[in-house]
Design a protein around this nucleic acid. Sequence first.
DNA 1: TTAGTCATGTAACGCGTTACATGATTAG
DNA 2: CTAATCATGTAACGCGTTACATGACTAA
Lengths: 204, 204
Amino acid sequence: MSIEHTILAVLSFWPSTGYNIKSEFEHKAAGLYWGMSYGSIYPKLKKLEKEGFIYAIEQEDEGRKKKKYELTAKGWKEFENWLKTPPPFPVIKDELLMKMSTWHEDMDNDVLISHLFKRKEEATDILKFVQEWPRNGYSFVSRLGCLSIRYAEMKLETEIKWIEESIEVLQNNNLPVGQDPHGNTEKLLNRRRMAIGGEKGNFQ
Amino acid sequence: MSIEHTILAVLSFWPSTGYNIKSEFEHKAAGLYWGMSYGSIYPKLKKLEKEGFIYAIEQEDEGRKKKKYELTAKGWKEFENWLKTPPPFPVIKDELLMKMSTWHEDMDNDVLISHLFKRKEEATDILKFVQEWPRNGYSFVSRLGCLSIRYAEMKLETEIKWIEESIEVLQNNNLPVGQDPHGNTEKLLNRRRMAIGGEKGNFQ
DNA sequence: TTAGTCATGTAACGCGTTACATGATTAG
DNA sequence: CTAATCATGTAACGCGTTACATGACTAA
């Protein structure tokens, strides 16, 4: 998904400056929006203006000079056509999952458990924020925005539940059986021990 | 997360060729792994070899010449140190959520509903695959891999449940109330109508 | 007065993809 | 024989970030 359309989407709420757009993303990182840097924002704003999707309103607002951008008719069209195009299935790149599924039996499970505890804390923090968001009294949350937030909530609750289950299973040594028709678990450990064998003493 | 570590992780399972690594990701895109292109893989393999993390075994296997790569002691170390470093909280960029929360009341809800139906189908397909994976009889799924897969399952089930709820709410015009202390919903519609006002006739 | 935040911008760089180039083997 | 799959690679490009540069206003 392009930064350009994200910017148009933010501007659809209200006219904003580049600085504004960045801060808009700072706290709403709950999976509904995602951050971008000034190095992307300002050049894109210029580009979008040059192409006629937005226009600048130079202001001397509150003693500070700023450049607020607003959508043009062309900008609204582009934004709404983007809304209408079916969104692609999201690619999730979760290092925790990757690490968990490539963790092996010569590794200390306690380290993995500490990863899970850390993730639980992070998820809990975001969940709290997400739950308060539509009731904090000042943020604008549209009726459909509410539905999106509901999704973030459900997903985080599921994640926390999974983490708790996983920690329990790991601590009680109660792991599921898996599937290993070619004895790969053992092969892996043998290959590893073979590789590091010569330096058994100093292998951390 | 770097491609390098992902490659080391794949090689930890079994020695593989560049082609192998790519195909490994083709079907396991369930959120546990993610794809990469030959344009990344081959140069990275060379780099990793040069740096002593992996070494090549040139083979004339099954009538085909291939270059299988295997981890060195240094490679195992690097891989395991990576496993031990706490994974960052994943950034989820879901265009569907972004579109839903910036959808506005002058847009046709049926289009949004069609997006949701499409997503439901995709999620259902992946869920089916994920559920069969640890029981298909041939894939290697470690005991911890099983836990990761369980997460993918739970997440997809939650997603599907949310989609079903959302479709229902949209079809019965039963949306939640939201939060709009500054009358932004109306302001937005006014700004939009103002912007496109001059060309009401031909605005698609 | 000084640290923080509001505010705008650019240049260099990193990272990964797309597209291209090549060729052998195998299944229909 | 021909399309698909196995197999390896490179060059150009797109996209976005990091780091840097600048400056004004504001609250402690």
